[in-house]
């Protein structure tokens, strides 16, 4: 019997189990239970949802371990938590707490403006954000076992998530259409390792699961992202900053499963109460655009 933990297959396989599901941001045990009862496939434990981080400003860091432990104790579904970009000590702390996935997230204030965490070295898997294919492949090269398009977190404006999904999908399709001898230059342009570029060109998809995140606030937004080729969705501020979180959460779960059925989408879109108010990404001054963090 040769047993192995923390292998790439086990880390990437965990993300495969989340597919077709909704991962919801929660700030306490009560919200975590609401999310689980609504059918969330995992929760992201954090102290402030992105909309509040945006509103309150200041440096955003890893959450208090006590708060993460309480959420872990409240639900049976997987619990994720965020570490700052490049903050490998926060990541070690989260690993020791036994969280199921770490999000090395641009929503928190970066700890390193050049390097991301070396993720191969951990038993716990990581999900990282990406705005384009090159960025996704650089993160996978560092050991990310799951990618999410970044969108613009905490806005309720889905346009950036759309842009990133189109960009990643378009770049994958472009690679698939290339001759093999053209992939060397493609790798140079994408600033990504040749082996990964070649793999994407051959398979027509990322080697890991691709979720989408940032600005998803309605069941229709979730279905839109699924139709754009996402394997699943993260909903941050969109649920618990809305008028009726439990109903909206359940509606988004149903919309993610029945994303191609307009009748189901119409049914679940009824009577949801107020959506989060939201901010147009275009109105955000450049320094406040989180998607631009990460390199």
């Amino acid at each position: 019997m040769s047993e192995a933990v923390g292998t790439a297959r086990v880390k990437r396989g965990m993300a495969e189990m989340l597919k077709g599901g909704v991962i919801m941001d929660v700030v306490n045990a009560e919200q975590a239970k609401i999310a689980q009862d609504a059918g969330a496939c995992a929760v992201m434990a954090l102290e402030r949802v992105p909309a509040d981080i945006r509103a309150q400003g200041g440096v955003a860091r890893m959450s208090d371990p006590d708060m993460i432990e309480k959420i872990k104790a409240a639900v049976t579904i997987p619990v994720m938590a965020k570490a700052r970009i490049g903050h490998f000590v926060e990541a070690r702390i989260l690993e020791s707490l036994g969280v199921d996935y770490i999000d090395e997230s641009e929503v928190l204030t970066p700890a390193d403006y050049e390097n991301h965490i070396e993720k191969w070295d951990f038993k716990v898997p990581f999900v990282c954000g990406a705005t384009n294919l090159g960025e996704a492949l650089r993160r996978i090269n560092e050991g990310a076992a799951m990618i999410r398009s970044k969108g613009e977190a905490g806005t309720g404006d889905v346009s950036n998530a759309m842009m990133h999904m189109r960009k990643i999908g378009g770049e994958i399709r472009r690679l698939s259409s290339m001759r093999e001898d053209e992939l060397y230059v493609a790798a140079k342009e994408l600033q990504a390792p040749f082996a990964l570029v070649k793999e994407v060109a051959e398979t027509g998809k990322l080697p890991v699961v691709l979720f989408t995140a940032g600005g998803i606030a309605t069941p229709a937004d979730a279905a839109l992202m699924m139709q754009m080729g996402a394997d699943g969705v993260f909903i941050g501020s969109g649920i618990f900053k809305s008028g009726d979180p439990a109903t909206r959460a359940a509606a988004c779960v149903k919309a993610t499963t029945f994303f191609e059925d307009a009748k189901v989408l119409a049914d679940v879109s009824r009577g949801l109460g107020d959506a989060m108010v939201g901010i147009n990404v275009a109105d955000l001054p450049a320094p406040h655009r989180l998607a631009e963090r990460g390199w």
Binding site: M1, E3, V5, G6, T7, G13, M14, G98
Partner: peptide, 29 residues
Amino acid sequence: RRNAFGRQVDSFESDLTFNQELLRAVFIR
């Protein structure tokens, strides 16, 4: 028993015998 082998950090792959054949099995939570 759900999540009997532990959380994701305990997820593992292992050889096992299924129907008299050796195979590599992946266990996730």
